[in-house]
Simulated assay, not measured.
Amino acid sequence: MKFKKNEIIEEIWRIREEIGHQYIEPDIKDIIFDEKNEVMLIITSDRPEKSIVIGKGGWVVGKLKEKLNIKSIHVEAYPDILLREYKIKLTLDKLKDIINTVDSQPLMNLCNLLNQRLENINDLDSILNSRNVEEPDTHQAIVALSGGVDSSFSLIIAKLMGFNPIAVTVNPGNIILPKYFQNSVETLTSKLNVKHVYIEVDMEDIIKDSLEGRFHPCGRCSKVIEKTVLNYTKEKGIPFLIFGDLLSTGAQSIVIEEDIIKINLPAMLSATKGEIKNIASKYGIFKKGGYGCPLINEVHKKYPHMKKFSIQRVLRETRAGILEPGEALEMIMKTI
């Protein structure tokens, strides 16, 4: 099945007219259609053109998907693609510096992956499907695994890159790590055939003070989890520690701390939330709406003013281009 650019443009302005939107012809730079997966990528010349294709509330792109009878349509602005390429080049420079001092095949595999991503920035899925690397006998990395899509994505990539990872889940109890996250963790590690370890930690003081409205819990909770996983990594003498952070792109996506090389894989790959959700879903991991942590949801109920700190987190990811404005709006509306 082939789609011509001029036909898609005509269909978009027809849909806009049908639903009462202003008649505007979008400037589309390119259209890429994955026939096997029935996924279309529309690349617009700029963000305002992207808004025209998406439409208010996503109506235009939603109706376009229905009319074309395909599974999914993603819309990207060309300047955003250029920015992602630039971030990946910064990452590559830092990664090559580390490779010069550290002999590691998994790091070389990551370097090759990033070079392939630069050649085909819009199709991470196909690049990963073509990867076939040997896994060492020894464990090369610890991956902090919460059961959410970001950390799940990180474990998947670590496995595909030949790190032979151990997945570590810090468990402060069901109020922070609910049963459905534990089920996701166990499902994923089983599918990937990855060793998995739970580490029990005491966060009673954080939980108590949060429920009394003393502070927003996320920052303090994250610090405890990071320190716990870092200590476990040092104790086991494993050289790499991998997290699912999205914001620390470029040179900050791989750093050396206390002789441990810390890698934030989604940030390193300059992955979008859409790419992360797509790859995680292939292994049965799906993003739930809003915040999955029962503690933060309870804090929101008891102290509505705390919601602003959660919303700031959403806005940070939106400014970084990780979240689409529509996704961000949905998360904010669920928060308030």
Rank of each mutant, 00 (worst) to 15 (best):
K2R: 13
F3W: 11
I9M: 08
I12G: 04
W13C: 11
I15H: 05
I15W: 03
R16E: 08
G20W: 09
G20A: 09
Y23D: 07
D34C: 07
N37I: 08
E38V: 10
V39S: 08
M40P: 03
I43G: 02
R47L: 10
V53H: 04
V60Y: 04
V60T: 15
K63P: 00
K63D: 11
K63Y: 13
L64I: 08
L64V: 06
K65I: 13
K67N: 12
K67C: 02
N69H: 12
I73E: 04
E76G: 00
D80L: 09
I81Y: 07
R84E: 07
I88G: 03
T91L: 06
D93E: 15
K96P: 00
K96D: 15
K96I: 14
D97E: 15
V102P: 02
L110Y: 05
L110C: 11
C111R: 15
C111Y: 15
L113H: 04
L113A: 12
L113S: 08
L114H: 09
D123G: 07
N132R: 14
V133L: 09
E134Q: 14
Q140Y: 13
I142N: 03
V143K: 01
A144P: 02
L145G: 01
S146K: 03
F153G: 05
F153S: 05
I156Q: 02
M161N: 04
M161S: 11
G162W: 03
F163C: 03
A167F: 02
V170P: 02
P172F: 05
I175T: 04
K179F: 06
F181M: 04
F181K: 02
N183T: 12
V185K: 03
T187P: 00
T187I: 12
K191T: 08
L192F: 09
H196M: 10
Y198R: 06
D202C: 04
D205T: 14
I206M: 08
K208C: 00
D209C: 04
D209G: 00
S210L: 07
S210T: 04
S210I: 02
R214G: 00
F215S: 06
H216L: 07
P217N: 10
R220Y: 13
V224S: 03
V224H: 01
V224P: 01
Y232Q: 03
K234E: 07
K234W: 05
L241I: 08
L247K: 15
Q252F: 14
I254V: 15
I261L: 15
A267E: 06
M268G: 13
S270W: 05
S270H: 08
T272V: 02
G274M: 10
G274Q: 12
N278S: 14
S281C: 10
Y283S: 03
G290E: 06
L295D: 01
N297G: 00
K301E: 15
K302D: 01
P304Q: 10
M306Y: 12
K308Q: 13
V314Y: 10
R316M: 13
I322F: 15
E324A: 13
P325N: 10
P325R: 08
E327H: 09
